[in-house]
Design a binder for these strands. Structure first.
Lengths: 347, 347
DNA sequence: AGTGTGTCCCGAAACGTTTTGGTTTTGGCT
DNA sequence: AGCCAAAACCAAAACGTTTCGGGACACACT
């Protein structure tokens, strides 16, 4: 029942290190942030004390005092989509090189979830966030959650013009246009497209590129060939089914994200159509096992990792008061031609 | 040059809320942690102030004072492996239901990276960590990094017996044994296996199950059929190549993780063997697009999400001083029979 | 001897919360 | 009026850092 002896084991503090090393608290701090004047002798004593006591700095206290956490958050809509994993790894790698630490959020395309993450990150006082907003984000409500934390958008960008420090992605209109042109060049005239939710600027851009390509080819645009999904396999499957079972079915389907392309492929396999002979399939975003599918998937590849790295760079440059890459930063896409597209059968 | 007027905009603090609401700091705190006596009138004034000032609590200060962050960390070896995404989602969902927050680390099978994450989480003073150790973890060095933070192992467990609060996974020996038995029951006698690194207890268990099944069938064990990979596509590809190009090639290959199964599939496709007619392939871990592959993959499915949830439960129960699930908690696996295995051709 | 000029170290004041141990107010009861 | 418990509030002390302003030396130069 000794009142102070049985204190439950807390963490070792800088103060205990100070006592052990026969120094003052401020000297320990100086030694840790290896700056300032601290003699070699003192320094080694301190290091010894740290080692034996197993001292581990408290970043809560540090962040509180410094008013800076040296960390940024990244929120993506779907971690099971490999594109976002690569993107996250990009921001992580750049951040690490700038000795920033990252916190990861996975909103699963739900604004509710995203809001929770953003709020949690704000309370943790991250220095900034790179955000890939969830599809069903209605308004510019993020501002209300994040206050004036710096935000950079990656991949997707919000429809309405809300405040942000920068954005990075690809030229979606151009990418979709040239992908569509590729299908046209193969001879396709009846092309279906499954896009993401119309509330997303990115989805709209891709659709715009598609339409633009069709129009340039002087083909009548059949609006019933345009389906809006939710960037997941289910909706890809659903809308592909719709397209494939209608009266006049398209000879090619363009999916504006990889998850929907997978769903479409599943639908094609289910119906038992030969791909690409009877139906060509074109996806967006590459992934490491796209070559394992039969047919291997032809896709528009985005430089996911690079997008992440640049987003992190813009953000951290801003945080540290440097000027940076002009924004929006638009990176190049690349059409990766594999086996899932071929000229349409003659009717 | 006014010295105090031009203070750069910091975050709103509880003190400013207090001023605005005409209350004291401690009353705001009481209102926030909605407990104690605070009159309805006062409460609404406070809420109004919070809203207009856009107050956002500072979890650094809170954690510092409380000596508790209400957060746990999860470190996995490979986020691009869907199995771990599901696992992470499991711990996230359970944690959220217990109003804990999670931090995610992706070590990419590198102890260096894992160490960085663990250290960072420790400094952040998470209340505990669920850990899937990286393959190349040499010794029980995690203890040195984490001090006496509670740790629960998920999926993999360390070879040497180091201190932890619990572990959860599947009965790997049993799972591998029955999977192998399935191949044997199809008539296979020459079965190759590609396992993970031998330093992992989990890999060893799976190998043991394989061997046990072979022995039970009174078949001579050919050790040259046993290959140790690194749980990634490259090594799956490499070792499958070895197995498939040797003199007497196996009629079936068992890969003890999904990444290596994909690599093996790539090798099979490259060589131009018919799967399953000429070579059967059996994987470990299911994933959502396993049905899209041709042939669709027969696998041992682990309840990834459930593993995550239970791991989180054990950890949080421990943190809050409740007793919990007995540990180790071993969950059931399930053999998902699809198209990648069939009886071997008669020679 | 006086005056700098470095070097090395220290005490105390923040940073934004929660909690402890009060003090004041309220209102119900003799 | 007097008393008391409960209700409503508050001041101050932590929590573990970093930083600011000095202080105590040692040494070199007038």
């Amino acid at each position: 029942m000794t009142s102070k002896a049985k204190r439950i084991r807390r963490h070792v503090t800088i103060r205990e290190v100070a006592k052990a090393a026969g120094a003052s608290v401020s000297t320990i701090s100086a030694a840790l942030n290896n700056s300032d004047y601290v003699s070699a002798d003192m320094r080694s004593r301190i290091e010894a004390a740290i080692k034996t006591l197993k001292y581990c700095p408290n970043d809560l206290a540090r962040g509180l005092r410094l008013q800076k956490t040296h960390s940024i958050a990244i929120v993506v809509p779907d971690l099971s989509n490999n594109f976002y994993i690569e993107l996250v790894r990009g921001v992580k790698d750049y951040s690490a090189s700038a000795s920033y630490t990252i916190l990861i959020g996975d909103s699963r395309e739900s604004w509710e979830e995203e809001r929770n993450y953003l709020d949690s990150f704000h309370r943790r006082r991250v220095d900034g966030v790179v955000r890939v907003p969830a599809m069903n984000t209605t308004g510019g409500k993020a501002k209300a959650i994040l206050g004036n934390l710096p935000v950079v958008y990656a991949d997707r960008h919000p429809r309405e013009h809300d405040t942000h420090i920068g954005r990075v992605g690809v030229d979606n209109t151009q990418a979709a246009k040239s992908a569509t042109s590729y299908l046209l060049s193969l001879g396709h005239r009846d092309i279906g497209i499954i896009t993401g939710d119309a509330s997303s600027g990115t989805s709209r851009d891709r659709l715009r590129g598609f339409i633009s390509a069709i129009r340039s080819a002087k083909i009548r645009l059949d609006r019933s060939m345009i389906h809006a999904g939710h960037n997941d396999m289910e909706s890809g499957h659903f809308h592909a089914m719709q397209l494939l079972t209608r009266g006049q079915r398209p000879t090619a389907i363009f999916c504006t994200n990889n998850m929907m392309a997978l769903g479409a492929l599943a639908a094609i396999q289910e119906i038992g159509l030969a791909c690409p002979e009877e139906i060509s399939l074109l996806g967006f975003d590459d992934f490491y096992w796209a070559t394992l599918l039969r047919p291997s998937l032809t896709v528009v590849r985005q430089p996911a990792r690079e997008i992440g790295m640049i987003a992190a760079r813009i953000l951290i440059d801003h945080i540290e008061g440097r000027s940076s890459v002009p924004t929006p930063a638009l990176l190049k896409t690349q059409l990766i031609v594999r086996d899932s597209c071929c000229p349409p059968k003659k009717m």
